[in-house]
Design a protein around this nucleic acid. Structure first.
Lengths: 148, 148
DNA sequence: CTTGCTTCGTTAGCCTTCCTAACCATATTG
DNA sequence: CAATATGGTTAGGAAGGCTAACGAAGCAAG
């Protein structure tokens, strides 16, 4: 690869990063304004989904998975626990840590609530053709991988 | 299309919406933690970029473009104006409205700041192969279209 | 022209989510 | 056993979003 094409690639990738950033901001602002009726905010649903799909975790692990600091996760967990959507158990073998586990109710709410929250987005996506949908599916997977 | 495949498409689209939602949350949380050194937050850079690339707008138009309510935009504009990155002029022909215009300094800061902010993401994207990059480029464009 | 409704932007006040700093309690290690 | 490291919580504050209420300016009907 010569110097020119390397610089072109650099430029292209920077621009892509910028556009993904922008797209994310607008996507989330749009979704935030939709009333999901589940009573759970995006961060709560997101954290709960990690427990549902990823199994029991400690608070620190969950915070890392969700890209937030432990104090932020402490509050999210407190709320979810108060709503009966997860349980807090002592960690076997480490008295400092705790084990967080989604309850059956948590599983139920998650599946209902997430579907409702993203429903308006799904409505719009339905207008796309199959190739575009497939492109977005790959993109979602790629973003998840890149961020992790 | 028979009933079964229609339901499959529904399900697939709902799942896609859900994953895009999740990917956006994690992407932004990752980027928020990067120090961009420009002194401007994501909402500020995003609003400024609309003015730079889309030309002068009223406050209401800018708020609509950015998917926020006017009071939220009032604060963003006040900050950008205080930093000398945009100007506020009376609207010719409508005494209620104002015209917002990016300054040269605003243009300069935008190009420097955005590149810096998304730089760490760009670093990660560089590891992808060309087909994946192209997929993400299309995806960013699609998301922008779907949300608008 | 005046009265009343609408629209643009602002102010006031609140809520949510995130952060860092400081702190306990429990491991772990020299 | 003392010193240090780690997991989680508490305290406090910054940022960004919202609604409600308001003043000023336009508009429309009488």
């Amino acid at each position: 690869m010569d110097a020119t094409s390397a610089r072109d690639t650099d430029e292209r990738v920077e621009q892509l990063a910028d556009r993904l950033h922008s797209a994310s901001i607008h996507l989330l602002r749009r979704l935030r304004r939709e009333d999901d009726g589940s009573g759970l905010s995006a961060p709560h649903l997101s954290a709960l989904s990690v427990l549902v799909f990823g199994g029991p975790l400690s608070l620190g692990e969950l915070a890392a998975a969700e890209q937030v600091r432990p104090p932020s996760m402490t509050r999210i967990v407190r709320n979810l626990e108060a709503d009966g959507l997860l349980t807090r158990e002592p960690h076997p073998g480490d008295g400092r840590a705790i084990v967080l586990r989604a309850t059956d109710e948590g599983r139920r709410i998650l599946h209902e609530g997430r579907a409702r929250r993203v429903h308006s987005l799904a409505e719009r996506l339905r207008a796309l053709d199959p190739a575009e949908i497939e492109c977005l599916e790959r993109a979602a997977e790629l973003i998840g991988r890149v961020v992790r």
